[in-house]
Design a protein around this nucleic acid. Sequence first.
RNA 1: GGCGGCGUACCCAAGUGGUUCAAGGGGACGGAUUGCAAAUCCGUUAUUCGUCGGUUCGAAUCCGACCGCCGCCUCCA
Length: 592
Amino acid sequence: MAVRLYNSLTRQREEFSPLNPPRVGMYVCGPTVYGHSHLGHAKSYVSFDAIVRWLRTPAPLGPGFDVNYVQNITDVGHLTDDADEGEDKVVAEARRRGLHPMAVVETFMRSYLDDMDALNNTRPDIMPRATAHIPEQIALTQRLIESGHAYEVNGSVYFSVGSFPDYGKLSGRKFEEMEAGARVAVNTEKRNPADFALWKRAEEGHIMRWPSPWGEGFPGWHIECSAMSQKYLGLTFDIHGGGLENQFPHHECEIAQSEAAHGVPFVRYWLHNNMCTLEGQKMGKSLGNSISLKDVFYGREGGVRDKAGNVLLDRTFEPVVVRHFILTSHYRQTLDFSSDALRAAESGSYKLRDAARELHRAAHVAQPPSAVSADPSRDRSDPSRDRKGAVSQPTDPSGDRGGATSTSADRAQLRQAMNPLPHGRGSDRPHAPLPSSLATSDAVRSALAEIEQRFAEAMNEDFNTAAAIATLFDLAKRSGEWLRDGLAAPGGAGSGASAGDRDADPKFATRAADLRAADGLMQHLAGDVLGFYWPAALGGADNGKQDDLIRLLIDLRAEARKNKDFALGDQIRQRLSALGVELRDGPQGTTW
RNA sequence: GGCGGCGUACCCAAGUGGUUCAAGGGGACGGAUUGCAAAUCCGUUAUUCGUCGGUUCGAAUCCGACCGCCGCCUCCA
């Protein structure tokens, strides 16, 4: 099954075939770090993370590409006004705060990474910073001057749009039309209003400045992406992603610079993710309704308000819920955030979480000690998988935590495990057995195989994460059925039979293998591919003494209920609930 | 003015020519289970895809017109 994707350049869905398979070079426009990340960043980078994760998913389930994922950090040159007249955004923020621009950059770069980690986005392989690539940008600018595509005026250098006939091919704009309807402010240095800055002269007092052949100055915004992508991915690379709002002028300018300088195609597939709105309204910094991710995740007084005190979101939501919500729509579709929509996503996310946990627990309980190495969900030592950075969970010797059910205690470990090694350390193409192949009963095997196929088809069709999630819910539903069947069967997981008894029961062996296969698939699809990571606020997996203490209270409560002392039982439940531990009484006992 | 997108049930949302295509989630309602609660389970909730035409043996899916909403062309992922 080949990956098909919508290429903005050709405006159609086409089969993806990389230049040098299995390698894939991918560049995604990163943030300009002059403020905290907002919901728009979340949509963009969660979407591209899902794309990267899928491209890296080992065959035969996924395409198994070896993706080199580059995402820049813009820390200079992005002006508040695109007529090349405004102030540098970072510098403006620095003055407002009375800080050095580089301190502003450090602050918000870390903030950005924190938020992306919280969303469980895989870290890019390379995160080049514009200020660390000044020589490369100067060299590219120089090359453009030499080839007649750029000119210098008073220490600033502009790209001559008229020298590049293809200008406008990405955004569908015609150069002549733009000249006529240009809304850009008049810059007297430009020969043509549509020309854009490659290098800007630094005025007196401008802090961020570097020497150049044209005097002291700083790079224009667009040039960094051309310079850094070519450095790390080559003159022609496979995928360039970014927000739709950057299609013009930013990406158009990147194409012009790169192709004019080198005479070869710049990017083969352009991917643009759509914007998001809030209650149907455009979300923008200038509109004052842009919501920072930190407010969404941790917000104050249980909600998010704008400066005027209007409620934007009536409560906070976990990062995994935001991720779930984003992935239930298509990346090229606009997404409307609202409290109600997030609440609905939360219910769905938690339902999936609970089903995955129940399955994982049952598969674990059902597992004879001798079968440890056969569990696909714990196949974390496979070097080809670790290397890809597609594994969402740390290597865990106890094997008790899979991609979808980790405990919060593993958070630090998780982050480390996200990117154990850069991509491409080996020449072998990643390959992993299909979880369905590990099921022993025909019914379960074919059911899992069908899920695998539908999931893969969805992701292969322009990364249809919404359809992929739907198959996860189906898997959760089927798993629930198998679980209930198993619990009712002799020797089932909930029957209290000892491990020795179960080992001797052939029925049990079959069931255990099936549950492990189902669990392995759930872990892989929900955890590794879609990146769902549910912090274990409710416990669930083994969490050492804390779990033992909760178990103790549950036992005491069971005793109380047995004696019809419901007041005490309810008190225990309520007080645990206040601590974030929800008890659930099931036919097989109490879980939480 | 130029460029582009969208309009699918109460809400979110997938689906871009035909047989399992009207997914999935949320919500609501009815029922099962339950000391209560939560969760879970079963069932119900679009003969129809903004409107009107057209193409076709066949359209939510293609074409045209119209209505409505939105984005980009200033800053934003």
